[in-house]
């Protein structure tokens, strides 16, 4: 294909991606370098019968004008990145200096908003992803052994939690496990402890959010692995059987290696999606116990009437950097594969 033709074919999709994905990333960076204008103060002298007193007032008009002229705010350099809501360099070095044990240090770091959200997001991604991989493979092997008639039904039922809107799916689960819901109330009865509720316990909330994560993404790994199982070479399986390999040994030594390329594909997809965890936190009203990176950006932007663009921008850029670092191994492998193929 000629360069010229290629250009015209790719133009619409490329301009959509550049304008609404690449440029916003640049914009996020620019926003993060500025802070909102402070209000313009005017000092007037109030002269009365007992002499003159200076008084300060907010000049609403001038403030508004300044904000209109420079919507980004005033230049702040990397200040936003280093402040308490983001990397909190000063707080961390202070915590390091004052705390005696690692536990104490960690406790202080965990209370900083960015690190708090980072901890939850990474824990969520790195607990949910392996669970989904292992359970997905187990279900795929199980369904593969089912009679043909039941396979279709099993896949149909499994697709429901995956395709349901995340916000809706998490609400459905939340209504069941909430203190008044069928599972929540039953658990309280069994343990005879009315305080045993999602809203009151951080560990319970974390566990429930991760259970939701597994419930929601398990079908994806299951179906991908199930499709992969259809392509396992019969000959190799038979040869292994003749050599005396048990079912379990065949699974570990033949099936799993055959599925390895799929495993890395599914892992990549799962990590991408799990790092943006957001909806379940909204549905569960979990913000008192668990906040993700996406949630704290959302919170900054929702600051009523006056979104904190700088703060949201800084968190966004840090999030993007973390996502890219975590994707690096896969990106490098894809690049190597491609170079091998083309030479």
């Amino acid at each position: 294909m000629k360069h010229r033709t290629f250009f015209w074919f790719i133009l619409p999709t490329l301009s959509a991606m550049v304008l609404f994905i690449a440029l916003p990333i640049v914009s996020v960076f620019v926003q993060s370098l500025f802070v909102a204008h402070e209000q313009v103060l005017v000092v007037t002298e109030n002269c009365g019968p007992f002499g003159c007193k200076p008084s300060t007032a907010v000049d609403v008009e001038a403030t508004e004008k300044l904000r209109q002229e420079q919507p980004l705010g005033k230049f702040n350099g990397l200040g936003t990145y280093l402040n308490r809501s983001h990397l909190a360099v000063a707080d961390i070095s202070e915590a390091w200096a004052t705390s005696k044990t690692m536990g104490e240090f960690w406790g202080q770091v965990y209370n900083l908003p960015f690190y708090n959200a980072l901890t939850f997001t990474l824990t969520y991604a790195f607990v949910v992803t392996p669970l989904v991989l292992v359970l997905g493979l187990a279900i795929a092997v199980g369904v593969n052994n089912l009679p043909a008639m039941l396979k279709g039904l099993a896949i149909f039922v499994s697709l429901l939690p995956f395709l349901v809107t995340p916000l809706v799916g998490s609400l459905i689960l939340f209504w069941m496990v909430d203190g008044d819901g069928v599972i929540g109330a039953t658990i309280q009865k069994i343990f005879n402890d009315p305080s045993l509720s999602l809203k009151a316990s951080t560990p319970l909330m974390w566990i429930m959010l991760m259970i939701y994560g597994v419930w929601h993404t398990l079908p994806f790994s299951f179906i991908t692995f199930y499709a992969g199982l259809q392509t396992v070479p019969e000959d190799t399986m038979e040869a292994a059987q003749i050599d005396g390999a048990s079912k379990w040994q065949r699974l570990i030594h033949v099936v799993v290696p055959h599925l390895m390329p799929l495993v890395s594909f599914v892992t990549l997809m799962l990590i991408m999606d799990n790092l943006r965890v957001f909806e379940p936190i909204v549905s569960f009203s979990a913000e008192a116990h668990a906040r993700s990176l996406s949630w704290i950006i959302f919170n900054d932007l929702r600051e009523s009437g006056n979104p904190l663009y700088a703060s949201a921008g800084a968190t966004s850029l840090l999030t993007i950097i973390i996502v890219i670092i975590l994707m690096m191994p896969v990106l490098i492998r894809t690049w190597r594969d491609f170079s091998r193929k083309s030479h």
């Binding site: 994905i21 996020v28 926003q31 957001f278 979104p307 968190t315 966004s316 999030t319």
Partner: peptide, 17 residues
């Protein structure tokens, strides 16, 4: 592929202003 990985919330924070 990299664009696919961007959390949507980070992009939204770039549009809003």
């Amino acid at each position: 592929l990299v664009f696919r990985a961007m959390p949507h919330m980070t992009l939204v924070s770039g549009y809003l202003l």
